[in-house]
């Protein structure tokens, strides 16, 4: 037969449904590149932020709590840290979403996991932002 390789386009006489009926339930046709695009944007932000963060964290090894808090409270540490937290949990959510989509084939388990991962990432990011704000507001001086 000549229809080898046309699995996605059934011949009209085999499928009596309208094009609309065939398209329904397959998802939006307008947000398809959104996931890919945000994964790259957050990745670029993290390429810039992660080397800086590693430097800050290494400098905190062996530091006591007061100097650790003073370091993090400095505006030019606190602001990039807040940006890192948002980018990191967003990027993590997008990545884990794909892992779940690929490996979890029981629909209700998949949806439940997606919801839990999203909520956990949002809560953790908010906790980090709260902690950063709290540290920044309670350290007496930025000059250390």
């Amino acid at each position: 037969m000549s229809d080898i390789g046309t699995a996605g386009a059934p011949r009209p006489q085999q499928d009596l449904r309208t094009p609309l009926a065939r398209a329904r339930g397959l998802g939006s046709g307008k947000s398809g590149t959104g996931h890919w695009w945000w994964q790259r944007l957050t990745a670029i932000a993290l390429v810039l932020l992660v080397p800086w963060l590693i430097g800050v964290l290494v400098s905190l090894v062996g530091a006591d709590i007061d100097s650790a808090r003073a370091t993090i409270a400095r505006p030019w540490n606190a602001i990039p840290l807040a940006a890192f937290v948002i980018a990191a949990f967003w990027h993590a959510k997008l990545g884990v979403q794909v892992v779940i989509e690929d490996y979890v084939h029981t629909r209700w388990v998949e949806v439940t996991l997606q919801v839990l991962v999203t909520l956990a990432c949002v809560v953790a990011a908010l906790a980090c932002l709260f902690a950063l704000g709290h540290i920044a507001m309670t350290v007496a001086s930025f000059n250390h």
Binding site: V96, A124, A127, C128, L132, H134
Partner: peptide
Amino acid sequence: SGVILTVGAFAFAWWLMALA
């Protein structure tokens, strides 16, 4: 490594909360 780092991000949040 991405999945491990997701766990790591939660560990980082835990450390930051403890620091606060």
